[in-house]
Amino acid sequence: MAQQSKNRPTSERANLYQQITDRIIAELEAGRVPWVQPWGAAKAGIGMPYNAVSERRYSGVNILTLWDAVISRGYASQAFLTFRQAIALGGSVRKGEHGIAVIYTRRFVPKVERRRANIEGREPSGGIPFLKHFTVFSVEQCDGLPAHICEPPPPIPEGLILPHAEALIEATGADFRIGGPSAFYSPTHDYVQVPRPDDFFDPTNWHRTAFHELGHWAGGASRLNRDQTGAFGSVAYGKEELCAELTGAFVCAALGIVPTVRHADYLGSWLEIIREDNRAILRAASAASKAADYLLAFRPQSAIAANDDDSQPDPDGAMAIEGRIAA
């Protein structure tokens, strides 16, 4: 019995990884890309899901999970909160409502290390990462919440989206070059290149392309230092493309630009990667969140005030031209 109890956390953690992975695979196999939602048919405006109490944005794979809930359940808001938070606000979750499971990471530090760190007067080091999950509800599943909690954020005024995007690109300080027939990031020379905006059928796609390539740039050796050594067509290359794809989608959503998939041919390689490793989508989404936060941190204070904040959540609380990584 003791052995069964000892093994249970590892088994539960593996099951949680697999549940998330299975859901993503099912979406991709159905021809739907979880980070490219059909926002045109959605009641909610494009944006990032956030905690209604702390106003902190959810991150990583939780963005995909909550976007799916917003679209599939027809919510008009991107605001979520826990059962306890609803009660604390004087409201309640309606009887019969089903919540959405989201995850967060914790680290288990053995008692020996905690004791040694206490003796030496330092913070414990190391630790074993593990996943925990908790349940959140849309504010639309609740009654009795304060009015300001239930109000959806105002829509981004038309005409401000593209200027904000251009301002962010400039603020990054990246070596960003416009011209040529293809879009790519060069790790060797540390620059991004995208074609002219008028080379795209829809000028908005130029911005989606730009943030995909800036997702690669954010992972450069002098910044987030991701592995970008994979040759074209390799698993490592596919993982980096998936990370940049998600980064572009997250940044676009934060700026009010509807994200789209860059190239349908990538679906096969993404499915292969995710099927072989049930933690691949979690790793990619986590790395993409870090890259998106890195890029969005360059926004001017005025732009940040006009949108939601970029902090991380607590438990309670496309393209006409295919991008590539150039050597």
Rank of each mutant, 00 (worst) to 15 (best):
P49T: 10
M48Q: 12
K43V: 05
G74Q: 10
V53F: 01
I119D: 12
A86N: 08
S125D: 06
G126S: 13
P110D: 09
P38E: 08
T65E: 07
F83Q: 13
F83A: 11
R94W: 00
A79D: 01
T82Q: 09
G121W: 04
I71H: 11
P38D: 11
V53H: 03
G74I: 07
F108R: 14
G96P: 03
R94D: 03
W39N: 08
G60A: 15
H98S: 15
R114C: 09
S72L: 11
Q85A: 15
A147S: 13
R56S: 14
E140D: 05
Y75C: 02
H133L: 11
L64K: 02
A101W: 03
A76R: 13
Y104T: 11
H98R: 15
Q37G: 02
Y58H: 14
G31L: 06
F137M: 12
E140G: 06
G126F: 08
M48F: 01
Q85S: 14
A101Y: 02
S92E: 10
W35F: 03
A44R: 04
A69M: 07
R73H: 06
P146Y: 02
D68V: 00
T65I: 15
A86T: 08
A147Y: 00
A41I: 05
R106D: 13
A52K: 09
G91L: 03
V109P: 00
K95E: 10
E97Q: 15
V70E: 01
G91N: 06
I119L: 14
I46E: 03
T135A: 07
V109K: 10
S77H: 02
E120P: 05
P38L: 10
Y75A: 03
R73L: 05
Y50H: 14
A86R: 07
Q85T: 12
A42T: 12
Y75R: 04
K132P: 00
A147H: 05
G121V: 07
I87F: 01
N51T: 09
V112I: 13
T105A: 11
E113P: 05
Q37E: 11
E113Y: 05
S77I: 01
I71M: 12
G144S: 03
R57L: 13
G31N: 08
F130W: 07
I87C: 04
F83T: 10
S92Q: 11
K111G: 13
P34W: 01
I103V: 15
N62S: 12
S77W: 00
Q78T: 11
G144M: 02
V112T: 14
N51Y: 03
V36W: 00
V102C: 12
D143A: 08
G121D: 05
R122E: 10
W35C: 02
A117N: 09
A147P: 01
A69F: 00
A147V: 11
A52T: 09
F83E: 08
T135H: 09
L131T: 07
N118C: 01
T82L: 09
A76P: 00
S138G: 06
T135N: 06
V93S: 06
F134K: 12
P49C: 09
A86Y: 03
V109G: 03
G127E: 06
W39C: 04
V109E: 04
R56Q: 15
F130M: 09
P110R: 11
H133V: 12
R106L: 12
R116L: 15
P34N: 07
E123T: 14
K95A: 11
G126W: 08
K43I: 01
V53I: 15
H98Y: 07
N118E: 14
R84M: 09
L145G: 02
P129T: 10
R73Q: 13
